[in-house]
Simulated scan of single mutants.
Amino acid sequence: MPRVWEVPVHDSTRVRDVRVAAAAAARHAGLAEDRVAAAELVTTELATNLLKHAGGGRILLDLVGPSAPAYGDERDALVQIVAVDHGPGMPDTAVALRDGYSTTATLGAGLGTCLRTADDFGLHSAPGRGTIVMARIGSRTRPDTTGPRPAPLPVRAGGVNIPLAGGGFSGDAWVCVRTADRVTLLLADGLGHGPLAARASSAAVEELRQVPHLPPADLLRRLDRALRGTRGAAVSVAQLDIGAGKLSFAGVGNVGARLRRGDTWQGLVSRPGIVGAHLPTHLPQQQAGWTDDCLLILHSDGLPSRWTPGPAADAPASLDPAVIAATIVRDASSPARPVRDDTAVAVLSPWPPDGTP
């Protein structure tokens, strides 16, 4: 089930809490002790930065798969650490990553240390809005390359998952799975909150992993049978046929989806119902072209209905999709107005033109 950790950081006593949560997440992921220590180091640096530069914020910890699964490694768990703040922001993120740069008379090695330690690292800051810093810590072992190797993906996926009121389990879950030249992104919102809702969304994730070749509408019918013994869930499914440059979408329940093509945003419509309880008889699939300037966002109803994508969603393709997801959640809330439900946002984006998966 989606075990998640959210630690508010508003005074120095919470730095230890962040470090403890990081160790728990890393051991939950089955990482070796040196990588557990790496997760502790990164979270400590990020929590300290929140206090020094932003007046506080929060740390989100989650277990995620690789952003671009390519070698049957979708089940490999990485610890994703995201620092979120509503602070003053950074005028120049590139300068902030250099060792020796500091605005508080310190050594200025914090973000540089995180960059070197993490398997993946992302940063976005907007003056007046705040900063998002993301790091993923994995085993750093190379995938098995003795068998046939599929071509690297031209897209990658990332997301964030935040439990309601700091709960240990989120009723939301998302996953990205590859089969041949198709990539399927699923987001499920189990009814209610807590472990029983998490059980429903987890069942949807596991079923997709069994049948990733099915198109979205057929997959929803399969999920309806698989979730019959659970509370049920709202589910959105998007499948990208890379060779054809075509995106297919189908959804049931109060899950949202938006597709950006160039400068235009298009809503993708889900049908009323509950997967596992009340599946609509007719499940149409929406079709859309996919090009290198596209961006897909799936989200649960924890976001306000009138949320706006914000500057990160229009940023260059070099921005990690998990960072985009975190900025969307941050900009839809505030320290005084936190998210109102379990909230998950998943993003599918192209690799940057000069990126190497």
Rank of each mutant, 00 (worst) to 15 (best):
113 T>E: 06
335 P>M: 11
125 S>T: 02
182 R>F: 07
2 P>C: 08
110 G>S: 07
273 G>M: 02
301 D>N: 05
126 A>L: 05
336 A>C: 12
81 I>D: 02
64 V>W: 12
100 G>V: 05
143 P>H: 12
304 P>H: 13
114 C>Q: 10
174 W>S: 11
259 L>D: 06
78 L>A: 11
281 T>L: 02
65 G>I: 00
115 L>S: 05
6 E>Q: 13
141 T>R: 15
87 G>Y: 04
312 A>C: 14
354 D>N: 09
38 A>I: 07
47 A>E: 08
33 E>P: 03
19 R>C: 15
49 N>Q: 08
71 Y>A: 04
14 R>V: 06
206 E>H: 13
44 T>E: 07
125 S>N: 06
341 D>G: 03
18 V>S: 00
223 L>Q: 14
283 L>R: 07
136 R>H: 11
112 G>M: 06
305 S>L: 09
310 G>Y: 08
345 V>K: 01
317 A>N: 09
147 G>N: 14
351 W>R: 15
109 A>S: 04
69 P>V: 01
251 G>T: 15
60 L>C: 12
255 V>E: 09
291 T>Y: 06
269 V>S: 12
252 V>M: 14
222 R>G: 00
154 P>R: 04
339 V>D: 09
66 P>L: 10
95 V>T: 12
306 R>Q: 13
159 G>V: 02
23 A>Y: 05
69 P>I: 01
314 D>C: 07
37 A>E: 15
31 L>S: 09
93 T>E: 09
299 H>R: 10
289 G>T: 12
270 S>K: 02
307 W>A: 02
50 L>A: 13
146 T>R: 15
54 A>C: 04
230 T>P: 01
115 L>N: 10
180 A>V: 10
141 T>N: 12
327 T>P: 01
245 G>L: 09
168 G>F: 13
263 D>T: 13
276 G>V: 00
129 R>N: 03
297 I>G: 00
120 D>F: 14
32 A>I: 15
240 L>H: 01
174 W>G: 00
344 A>H: 08
297 I>W: 08
244 A>S: 13
126 A>P: 02
231 R>C: 03
286 Q>W: 04
127 P>F: 06
342 D>E: 08
243 G>S: 05
46 L>A: 05
101 Y>G: 01
39 A>H: 02
58 R>L: 10
44 T>L: 07
133 V>F: 03
294 C>S: 08
58 R>N: 02
15 V>P: 00
70 A>T: 13
4 V>R: 02
80 Q>H: 07
285 Q>D: 15
160 V>T: 07
11 D>N: 10
234 A>G: 12
28 H>L: 14
47 A>T: 11
295 L>T: 00
3 R>S: 12
169 F>V: 01
316 P>M: 08
7 V>K: 00
219 L>M: 15
73 D>G: 08
232 G>A: 13
26 A>I: 04
246 K>A: 15
237 V>D: 09
23 A>M: 10
314 D>R: 11
237 V>N: 06
313 A>I: 04
140 R>A: 13
195 P>F: 03
231 R>A: 06
63 L>P: 03
92 D>F: 08
268 L>Y: 14
177 V>Q: 12
111 L>E: 05
315 A>P: 01
225 R>N: 07
78 L>C: 10
283 L>Q: 11
332 A>P: 02
230 T>K: 00
173 A>L: 06
341 D>H: 06
89 G>E: 08
33 E>W: 15
293 D>H: 10
310 G>K: 06
322 A>T: 15
54 A>M: 03
176 C>K: 05
167 G>M: 12
268 L>A: 11
181 D>H: 10
